[in-house]
């Protein structure tokens, strides 16, 4: 029992009431994790959506990242075991084992994975230096909850920088933590719960007012069906 308690039960909470779409999280993540911004590939991103209610058109910011599902479609899809889970349940990719088949990319219902191509590896080494590059081979890449930071007591890079604290970090094993309480009380909810993926990322929907009623799932579907080129 004691051993079990020692493992944190990490969770990520996003309060959509205070996201202002500044993209600081995208910038922090890409600097921390050397993701290929030059090829417009990001581990985390802030989607924007239009929601139309009669004459009233809202603008919504919707931060996205890997949901670190406890019931993990990508993990089951991976043929080589490159995708694995840490003892704390963080979903990771072993770059050396990844063969780039993209089965995981297809399996992920949240569009959270992308290819870190050979060209990206080369470019990254050029930018950060051979010595400091953390992407040595091509692979499928995704958010790690900044595992290298959280295991040493730091917040994920995006949480640490979020100017409005809309991104929050907690350990659900600490029920006293006000952020954990947002999850435990049911105020923060996982996205697309019906998929049964049991994510570790929880969202607080924008508060409804008579002026602008908001349904989070509606925001999600608006964003997915959003007008793209």
């Amino acid at each position: 029992m004691e051993n079990k308690n020692k493992l944190p039960n990490w969770a990520f909470v996003i309060d959509l009431n205070s996201c202002i779409g500044c993209n600081a999280c995208m910038a922090a993540c890409t600097q921390e994790n050397q993701t290929p911004y030059w090829a417009e590939k990001f581990r985390t991103k802030v989607e924007q959506a239009e929601l139309v209610k009669g004459d009233n058109v809202g603008r919504f910011f919707f931060p996205r990242l890997c949901m670190h599902c406890q019931n993990t479609p990508c993990y089951y899809a991976c043929p080589t075991g490159a995708t694995y889970k840490t003892p704390e349940g963080v979903v990771m990719v072993n770059q050396d084992l990844c063969i780039g088949c993209e089965a995981c990319v297809t399996a992920c219902p949240y569009d959270a994975r992308y290819r870190y191509d050979y060209e990206d590896v080369v470019k990254n080494k050029e930018l950060f230096g051979e010595e400091f590059s953390i992407h040595q081979v091509p692979h499928v890449d995704k958010c790690t909850f900044c595992y290298h930071r959280i295991t040493k007591g730091l917040e994920p890079a995006c949480v640490a920088t979020c100017p409005t604290d809309c991104r929050m970090w907690t350990d659900l094993n600490n029920p006293e933590d006000p952020v954990a309480q947002l999850v435990l009380s049911g105020r923060a909810k996982p996205l697309a719960e019906h998929l049964g993926t049991n994510p570790k990322v929880y969202y607080i929907a924008p508060s409804s007012t008579k002026v602008e009623p908001v349904d989070m799932e509606e925001v999600y579907s608006a964003e997915r069906g959003g007008k793209e080129e």
Binding site: T30, Y37, W38, E40, F42
Partner: peptide, 12 residues
């Protein structure tokens, strides 16, 4: 380059 990378992403 970093800012341009972000601004070139999708709808942004």
């Amino acid at each position: 380059p970093l800012i341009v990378g972000i601004t070139n992403w999708k709808k942004l």
